[in-house]
Simulated assay, not measured.
Amino acid sequence: MARITPLSARMELAGFGYAPLEEYPGITTAKWKARHLECGNEVSIRLHVLRQGRGCCMPCGAKKHGSTRSLDPGKAFEAMLSANLEPLEPYPGSVGKAWKSRCLVCGDIVAPGTRTLRLAREAVERVARGNVQRLAGGTKKGQSGSCFP
């Protein structure tokens, strides 16, 4: 790719929502100090990373990532019930956080995150079919024990 002029680089950076705080370093792969216009944070950004759609300031990126990791509490509750789990506390707000629940198949208290519900649902189905060879706590098929390995 051809080198770009400092003016073109500044305009491109502005198009991504950043204001430069220093002169363009001369290549798109070098770090460039800038201010994120959305939140005002000072960042060191690489123009080529912005071009790839991957760059943003850390606080805004964490906020954006966090919003994709949560579910509507009602949908999360339905997902738990569909996995034969009865929530024992309010939704923790993120798919990665543990959610204390009672297994409606074996009665154990478990705490899967909602992102592990697919695995939880599969474990419950295996127990229901009698296909579980070994359960948590070392119990074997036909004995009491947790559905969640």
Rank of each mutant, 00 (worst) to 15 (best):
29 T>M: 12
133 Q>H: 12
112 P>T: 04
53 G>C: 10
48 H>R: 13
135 L>H: 11
47 L>I: 00
41 N>M: 11
76 A>C: 14
75 K>G: 02
125 E>K: 02
114 T>A: 07
104 L>Q: 09
143 Q>A: 09
115 R>G: 11
46 R>F: 06
121 R>M: 08
146 S>E: 05
65 H>S: 15
129 R>C: 06
102 R>I: 04
92 P>W: 12
65 H>G: 13
101 S>T: 11
131 N>T: 09
83 A>M: 00
38 E>G: 13
74 G>I: 15
71 L>C: 01
116 T>H: 06
54 R>I: 01
83 A>E: 00
149 P>Y: 10
64 K>V: 11
102 R>F: 01
112 P>L: 09
64 K>Q: 12
29 T>L: 14
40 G>N: 03
59 P>E: 02
71 L>F: 04
117 L>H: 07
131 N>M: 11
78 E>Y: 01
80 M>A: 08
114 T>Y: 09
136 A>D: 13
91 Y>N: 03
120 A>P: 02
141 K>Y: 11
64 K>L: 13
47 L>F: 01
109 I>Q: 11
18 Y>D: 05
116 T>I: 00
57 C>Q: 07
44 S>N: 13
69 R>T: 07
117 L>D: 02
97 K>Q: 03
43 V>D: 06
21 L>G: 04
74 G>P: 00
51 R>F: 03
8 S>W: 09
120 A>E: 04
145 G>Q: 02
4 I>M: 14
126 R>C: 09
6 P>H: 08
137 G>A: 04
132 V>F: 04
4 I>Q: 08
119 L>E: 15
72 D>S: 10
119 L>H: 15
34 A>W: 05
63 K>S: 09
84 N>Y: 05
80 M>C: 06
76 A>M: 12
114 T>V: 06
137 G>S: 01
83 A>L: 01
39 C>E: 12
125 E>R: 02
99 W>I: 01
26 G>V: 09
68 T>I: 05
1 M>Q: 08
90 P>C: 05
78 E>I: 07
56 C>D: 11
121 R>H: 14
38 E>V: 10
19 A>N: 10
99 W>V: 02
93 G>D: 03
83 A>C: 02
30 A>D: 02
8 S>Y: 13
128 A>E: 15
144 S>R: 13
64 K>S: 14
103 C>I: 00
95 V>A: 03
61 G>S: 06
126 R>G: 06
146 S>H: 07
58 M>T: 15
69 R>Q: 11
61 G>K: 09
108 D>T: 01
121 R>K: 10
31 K>W: 10
119 L>S: 15
12 E>K: 06
20 P>V: 06
91 Y>E: 06
105 V>E: 15
45 I>M: 06
27 I>D: 07
146 S>N: 11
18 Y>A: 02
92 P>M: 09
